[in-house]
Write a protein that binds this DNA or RNA. Structure first.
Lengths: 188, 188, 188, 188
DNA sequence: GATGAATGAGCGTTCATTCAT
DNA sequence: TATGAATGAACGCTCATTCAT
């Protein structure tokens, strides 16, 4: 039941927004009562936090697996991380939208925890870029921090537009993105 | 007075969010009463729409000026548009945050209008890239639509992190971004 | 309107208890809406605090007037204070009941303030007894603190049973009380 | 288990109040579940009634024992009853507070029964005073009903302030009270 | 132009109680 | 005996909006 509530909430929060979706909306759509909701969650905010944690923890876990694989180059790892992000947006689009859009509806302690985890994710990419610079894969003059923000912008922004059933698959988008990140768009 | 209300609202909406900011908050912080608000605005949503229009119309206007300058190359125009976006986030940070974050609080007609304008802005960039491909500035195999989304992601995402009083100026960020967009990050 | 709400609330809180009386009950009985209530009071607890302050401040003010009258003996002052308490319970019975019964529904800060005022009222009586002992009106071996509590018990308890329209008037009750306090009940 | 629930409830009801203490609070603090509570009690109100009965029935029983002792004078009996009341507040302080404070949370039938028992307790004291008047121990002009209320006020009020671990013991308080009741406070 | 009293619909949350297991 | 999922009614409170002045 807790999972049913979470799943349904993700759907509704994505469609109507967190604040605009009432607990009543959630439980009505499941044919249960508000009491049931509060049996499983202590507050609406806790539910939102659950959704946030479910999303970011999954990403962090997968990112770590990618990064610790000593057999791959930095370029390959970058490609895999970008792919992972687009894929996650593709497969968990609703949760992703909530994650990027509704963070301000968490209380300050929870915001802090989520921001910490987002920071960790970003720092891991910074580290990857830095390593790539050091081992000669990436250009030495790069401003690692800004470049990392650019890469995150490219990928994260796709929650705003990427359509899993559109012309281009998630993997193809990732390939285009990485091609651009590595080679740029100009003719040499 | 209408402008004072708008300006103050932008500040409050950015800090606390649109839904979490009440009309009472706005008028209290200005030392006037709710009646005054409703003399100038027919609804809270109209105020939000005003803020949205103020932001996007400014961008569109400036974008057009950049694009119609026949003396500049596509690369140069791209640089100017990127700079404009970062600068706008730098100088109108609060309005930018509201623009990207609170669109769902507009009613459906207004959402449609804003989306149309955002689409126009994007289509203009697509057109610019396409022209660059055709005239040999950009690589011919580019997927113009996805690349445009990547560029928008890079720039728009900066509303999430760019700090005008930080280490790097808006212009420097724009330069780093365009350098990356054009040349990529890998060593050739 | 604020006074109408307060007056009606006193009536309802006395009859049904503070917790058992809802804001809905209050506003329904006045033919207004909840919004009106919250236009005048920031919370239900604030209303309760208003009622408490209205009661205790009135008593303290009157008590001071009695005590500062240099022309009266301690016995006379004691009689006037007892009379005042019974009379206040007679004329403001409902507020008195709420005052004695519902203090625990105030928040901790407000409880502290009210307790402080009740303490002040008590300390003033202690001081009166002490003065009476010193000037030979009262017996020298009295335990002033406990005696004060006994006097307060006699008077305050009357909120539980005193009926203004009963056999004995408030003034008569006060006379009986003071007679007993001064002379006791046994035959000498 | 039923006694454990009752004992724990008395502690919680005294600290937080009856209405403010939920069944959940009670069962959580005992490490059991709500179902268990409803196995032993048919309602929260029944539990409160149990507490009331436990307190008043004890007092009535003891009062009867005191009163039927033909070897004691009315003064002595009065002293013993006052002592009993202060002692009960001292030893069962929490239950006493609940008894005096939460009676309004009983349903009307139960209120009636408790009031009846409180009345019986009071009537027994009235009878004692009346006998004392008739046999010459107490002054003949006393208003027995009001005097009884005064005595009850003195003793019952002590649930508001008496501290068993304070400067004065329960027995000493009783002695001071009875001394005052019998002789008054003025110098003859 | 501006006020401020009043509305009314809705929201998040609580909690005593029930009941199948 | 005891559990725990589920209910449903109520509650305190918020807030965008209206409107007579």
């Amino acid at each position: 039941m807790k999972e049913k509530i979470t799943a349904q909430s993700i759907r509704l929060f994505e469609k109507k927004g967190f604040t605009e979706t009432s607990i009543q909306d959630v439980v009505d759509s499941l044919g249960v009562t508000k009491g049931t909701f509060y049996y499983y969650f202590s507050s609406k905010e806790e539910l939102l936090m659950d959704i946030h944690l479910g999303y970011i923890d999954g990403l962090l876990l997968y990112q770590e697996q990618i990064l610790k694989d000593a057999s791959k180059s930095c370029k390959e790892k970058l490609f895999e991380i970008v792919t992972m992000l687009i894929t996650s947006i593709s497969s968990q689009g609703a949760a992703a939208k909530i994650f990027f859009r509704e963070i301000n509806n968490l209380n300050s302690e929870h915001v802090e925890l989520i921001v910490q985890k987002r920071d960790q994710f970003r720092l891991n990419i910074e580290e990857l870029i830095r390593t790539g610079v050091e081992n000669g894969e990436f250009r030495p003059e790069l401003d690692v921090l800004i470049i990392t923000m650019a890469i995150l912008g490219i990928t994260n922004w796709s929650y705003q537009w990427f359509n899993p059933s559109g012309r281009v698959t998630d993997r193809e988008v990732a390939e285009i993105f990485v091609e651009m990140i590595l080679k740029g768009i100009q003719v040499n």
